[in-house]
Computed example of a mutant assay.
Amino acid sequence: MLGFRGQCPTKPSCYSVTLAQLRGARRDRRTEQARVHAGLLVLDPTTTPAVGHWACQRSGYSPGAGLLAADVWHRGELKRQVVAEEGP
């Protein structure tokens, strides 16, 4: 079958079940299984979930990004000092 080993993926849509429908049903079933396995709530497709609690996880730079930001600031200060010392 042109290198596809088995059923050709370009199956005509005149069949009762298309490959897209099979893939969609398989995806939905696997998603539901994963949700149940993880202990998550079953979502109702007719409603919109709302987040009732917000919490700040962290703010500011990470340690590495803080060092980079301090280096950029320090180099800027050095350039400003050089320009100020040279004058117009």
Rank of each mutant, 00 (worst) to 15 (best):
M1G: 13
M1N: 13
G3W: 09
R5D: 15
R5G: 08
G6N: 01
C8N: 15
C8R: 12
C8Q: 15
P9Y: 10
T10C: 11
T10V: 05
K11S: 10
P12S: 01
P12N: 00
P12E: 00
S13Y: 10
S13G: 14
C14E: 11
C14F: 01
C14K: 02
C14I: 05
Y15M: 00
Y15T: 04
S16T: 09
T18R: 08
L19T: 06
A20Y: 00
Q21W: 04
Q21C: 01
Q21L: 09
L22S: 08
R23I: 11
R23G: 07
A25C: 05
A25E: 15
R26A: 15
R27A: 02
R27H: 10
D28C: 00
R29H: 04
R29P: 01
R29K: 10
R29Q: 14
R30V: 08
T31R: 03
T31G: 02
E32G: 08
Q33A: 09
Q33K: 03
Q33E: 13
R35C: 01
V36R: 07
H37M: 05
H37D: 10
A38H: 02
G39S: 02
G39E: 10
G39Q: 04
L40G: 03
L40A: 12
L41C: 02
V42S: 11
D44F: 04
P45E: 07
P45I: 01
T46K: 02
T46Y: 04
T48M: 05
T48L: 13
P49K: 12
P49I: 06
A50F: 11
V51I: 09
G52C: 01
G52T: 15
G52P: 01
H53R: 14
W54G: 04
A55V: 03
A55N: 09
A55H: 11
C56D: 09
C56P: 06
Q57F: 06
Q57G: 07
Q57D: 07
R58H: 07
S59C: 12
S59N: 12
S59T: 09
G60N: 03
G60D: 09
Y61H: 07
Y61L: 02
Y61E: 00
Y61C: 00
S62D: 13
S62Y: 12
S62E: 10
P63T: 13
G64Q: 15
G64M: 10
A65R: 12
G66K: 04
G66I: 00
L67Y: 14
L67T: 15
L67K: 15
L67C: 10
L68M: 13
L68T: 09
L68A: 15
A69Q: 13
A70G: 09
A70D: 12
A70Y: 03
D71F: 00
D71T: 09
V72C: 02
W73Q: 10
H74Q: 14
H74I: 01
R75C: 09
R75A: 07
G76W: 08
G76I: 04
E77F: 06
L78T: 06
L78Q: 15
K79R: 14
R80F: 00
Q81L: 11
Q81S: 06
Q81H: 14
Q81K: 14
Q81Y: 11
V82W: 06
V83K: 11
E85Y: 07
E86L: 14
E86V: 07
G87R: 04
G87M: 12
G87Y: 10
